Simulated assay, not measured.
Amino acid sequence: MLNKNNTGLIVVDVQGKLARIVNDSDLLIENCAKLIKGAQILGLPIVWLEQNPEKLGATVEELSTLLSEQKAITKFTFDGYAEPEVMQAIHRADIETWLVCGIETHICVYQTAMSLIKQNYEVQLVEDCVSSRTIQNKQLGINKLVSQGAQLTGLEMCLYELVKDCRKPEFKAILSLIK
């Protein structure tokens, strides 16, 4: 079970034109925004990644506005964990479990999550918050990650799992995100 005291969120490369052409892009962006808001309500550490933003463009405005109090970490490797600044941010967070969202499931999300698994972090892939240009590649990335030890979760499932109790002060804010 997820615990807000040892869980963080990694937002992978929801950028530029690519974010607008992945499968179900509007829903992906909407769900990622809800996930980010939920993580903020719960006080989770967030690591925000951008793949070569000078070439691919910045994170879409719907998400960058939510993340404006922090700085995106620029990466050039598909595996975010291979970038020293990303690795340092993950280690500084000092948590055990990472929720992972973003694009593309079979490339940057996959490689970043695999490195986290190899470093003995628990990875929970937020299935309705990841995408690829094709549904086949999204499913391929999901299947391969699950076969290597990642767990699947969904937007609602992980947020309610983190809140745990309808009497918690965060519950109403989370409920309003999901409605």
Rank of each mutant, 00 (worst) to 15 (best):
C108Q: 02
E83I: 04
I90W: 04
K75N: 06
T134H: 09
D94M: 13
V86P: 00
R133K: 11
V163R: 06
K118D: 14
T112L: 06
V130E: 06
E127A: 15
I117S: 01
K168T: 11
V146Y: 09
V123Y: 08
T153Q: 11
K75Y: 03
D128L: 08
E96C: 14
E127Q: 12
G102P: 10
E96G: 13
V109H: 12
K164F: 11
Q136W: 15
A89Y: 00
F76I: 07
Q88E: 11
I107Q: 03
R133E: 05
Q119A: 15
M114C: 13
L162G: 03
L159A: 14
Q124Y: 14
T153P: 15
L125C: 13
C108P: 01
Q148R: 13
E83T: 07
V146D: 03
K138E: 00
W98V: 04
V126S: 10
K144F: 14
P84M: 04
A82Y: 03
I103K: 06
L159F: 13
T105C: 09
K118N: 12
T134L: 02
L145M: 00
Q139E: 13
E127R: 12
Q139A: 12
V163E: 06
L155D: 06
E161K: 07
Y81T: 10
N120G: 08
T134V: 08
I107Y: 01
H106C: 03
Q151Y: 09
V123Q: 01
L159P: 04
N137Q: 11
I103H: 05
I107F: 00
I135R: 13
M114G: 01
Q136D: 14
Q124D: 12
H91E: 10
R133W: 13
I142S: 08
